[in-house]
Computed example of a mutant assay.
Amino acid sequence: MKIGIVIPAHNEALTITNCLASVQTAIEQLPPTIAAYLLVVFDSCTDDTLALVKAAGVDYICCDYQCVGRGRDMGIRHAITQGATWLACTDADSIVTTDWLVQQIAHITHQPTDMICGVVSVDSWAHLTPQTREDYSNHYQDIMGHRHIHGANLSFSGEAYLAVGGFAPLSCHEDVDLVKRFETRGYAITWSNHVRVITSSRLEARATEGFAAFLANLEKSNLQ
């Protein structure tokens, strides 16, 4: 088995190094029978992200889509050509847990599945109001069987991914769209809080309706 880990990046020089280090640590926990291929997809980067990825010795491809859906799809399809049969997505502003990949393998092994939707934790609440943290905690279901969808923590079978047509060319909610198509086609989806990622609490959104925008809107409502 070979796992492809695909990370889209658009001007992520401040976070990419820690992200890649966490993924490398997760890869090191895999048994020798499982190979891993790590790929960064640079989409319209104008900062030092590329230089940092080169310094880390990680494979990469470049595009100028300015569209996370197209970037993710390009990366996933490239990883599949490199022999990956299971694909794991995270984001360049996130840190995966040490057992991120091991937990995915455990799910696949013990109860075969076509997709795993994992959970995210927020890296810091220090710059946000206590009410924003409370509102988020009341909203978020950190349990098995949750129904949250995060592009920063989404993994799936390569065969099923190709069968449903892959990520759509959307600038946001490409993850939600993909999950819906897996559901429509009757693929098995595991909603797991064992597969975990720690994501940035920044409020400067890369995607207009992504996680940062969600936090920013919560914070804005609490400051009014």
Rank of each mutant, 00 (worst) to 15 (best):
R70C: 09
V41G: 02
Y60A: 14
D64S: 12
S44L: 03
Y65A: 03
G71T: 11
F42R: 01
Y60D: 08
Q66T: 13
C63I: 02
D48S: 10
R70F: 07
L50T: 10
C45G: 05
S44A: 11
I61M: 15
D43C: 00
C45Y: 02
H78M: 08
S44H: 06
T49A: 05
C63F: 01
V68K: 05
D73I: 00
D59F: 11
L52P: 01
A55E: 07
Y37S: 14
G57T: 01
Y37H: 14
R70N: 13
G71A: 15
C63G: 03
D43W: 01
G75V: 12
R70K: 15
L52W: 08
A56N: 08
G57F: 04
V58Y: 09
C45K: 00
Y37M: 07
T49P: 02
L38Q: 13
R70M: 14
H78D: 07
C62P: 11
Y65M: 03
V58E: 03
A51C: 10
I61V: 15
A55D: 07
S44W: 03
D48G: 14
C45V: 05
G75E: 10
G69T: 06
G75R: 07
R72G: 01
V53D: 03
K54C: 14
V41C: 07
V41W: 01
D59M: 11
L38W: 07
L39M: 09
C62N: 14
V41N: 00
V40C: 11
D48W: 12
Y37G: 08
A51K: 15
C67Y: 03
F42P: 06
T49I: 10
D43Q: 03
Y37T: 05
G75D: 10
R77Q: 15
G71S: 15
Q66F: 07
D47P: 04
Q66G: 05
D47V: 02
R77P: 03
V40P: 07
V68W: 02
T49G: 04
D47A: 00
D64F: 03
R70Q: 13
C63E: 04
H78F: 13
T49V: 05
V40T: 10
R72D: 01
I61W: 09
F42H: 04
L52Y: 08
G69D: 05
D47G: 02
C62W: 09
M74W: 05
Y60K: 10
T46K: 15
V68D: 04
C63Y: 02
C45L: 02
S44E: 14
L50E: 12
L39K: 07
D64H: 07
I76S: 11
Y60T: 13
V58N: 08
T49L: 07
D48C: 09
R72V: 09
I76L: 12
L52G: 10
R70P: 06
R77H: 12
R70S: 13
L52C: 10
D43V: 00
C63Q: 01
D64N: 14
R72T: 04
T46C: 13
G71M: 11
T49R: 05
H78C: 10
F42A: 01
L50A: 13
M74N: 09
I61T: 15
C62Y: 08
C62M: 12
A51F: 11
C67V: 08
Y37V: 07
V58M: 06
G71H: 06
R72N: 08
S44V: 04
D73F: 02
K54Q: 15
V53K: 01
H78E: 10
L50F: 13
Y65W: 00
S44I: 04
C62G: 11
